[in-house]
Every structure is written in structure tokens, then in C-alpha cells.
């Protein structure tokens, strides 16, 4: 189970989350997104970058609400809402966006 990116091999788990977080790169994000049927645009990157910054500080993905609040600040209220997040990431901003951002999958009753 691995992604091929720029001639290198990046291992991932059964669900497509990369196993070594330091393997992540922007090119890899594009590869993962493609597998998820997502074409990365500016808004996608905005979310992914926020997730990575948040993760770097807190070692966990933010709550959806925290993410939305941050998006609202940068992209405006018409994009800073749950519905728009699901338009960007149909399987959910938490799980799908985390996968593309190279973060571990949020576990538990979520």
C-alpha cells in the first residue's frame, strides 16, 4: 500500500493515510487528492495548509468548528460554513482533508 510521487514511494495504511507524516509533500497531496477525486484548488489548499499549521502546533487536527472559524476569517462567511466544507471535501473536512494534508485519521466516535 503506497503512493508513487516523483519516483518515490510513500507508504500508507489501509485507508490511504500516510504512515510516516514527514513523507508529506505538496506533490503527494495532489496525488492523494486525485485518488479521492478532488482537484486541488486554492480553497482546498487553504484548508490543507490550516490543518497542517494547526497540527504542527497541537499534534492533532482541529475540531471542524475551529477549522470553519479559521476559514471564515480568511475566505469569508460564504465559504466559512459546514456546507461549503463538504463541497470541498465530500467525505468530510475532518477525515478527507486530513488524509490529503498527511495527518493521521481522527479516531473515535467521529
Amino acid at each position: 500500500m503506497s503512493y508513487q510521487v516523483n519516483g518515490t514511494t510513500v507508504e500508507h495504511d489501509e485507508e490511504g493515510y500516510i504512515t510516516t507524516l514527514s513523507d508529506w509533500s505538496k506533490d503527494l497531496a495532489e496525488v492523494i487528492a486525485k485518488q479521492e477525486d478532488i482537484n486541488m484548488n486554492e480553497e482546498h489548499w487553504e484548508v490543507v495548509n490550516f490543518l497542517r499549521d494547526y497540527y504542527e502546533e497541537y499534534q492533532i487536527a482541529p475540531a471542524v468548528r475551529v477549522l470553519i472559524k479559521a476559514v471564515k476569517k480568511t475566505m469569508g462567511p460564504e465559504k466559512g460554513n459546514n456546507k461549503y466544507m463538504y463541497e470541498l471535501f465530500p467525505y468530510g473536512p475532518a477525515k478527507q482533508a486530513c488524509k490529503i494534508a498527511g495527518l493521521p485519521k481522527p479516531t473515535g466516535c467521529v
Binding site: Y58, I60, R65, V66, K69, P104, P106, T107, G108, V110
Partner: peptide, 29 residues
């Protein structure tokens, strides 16, 4: 998940720093 609870204290893997930040954010809301 059980391994995470034993390690960090919850299913999510939410550490105290992140939990505190989340709660402060919610208090603002």
C-alpha cells in the same frame, strides 16, 4: 482507540494543550 485512551486519555488522541485550546475557542463562541 483503546491504545490511544491508555496513552493520551481519549479516543481522539486530543492532548491537554489541544483540548485547552479547543475549549478556549468554544468559550469565545
Amino acid at each position: 482507540i483503546i491504545a490511544k485512551v491508555k496513552d493520551i486519555g481519549n479516543n481522539l488522541g486530543l492532548n491537554p494543550k489541544a483540548l485547552r485550546a479547543t475549549l478556549e475557542d468554544l468559550e469565545e463562541d
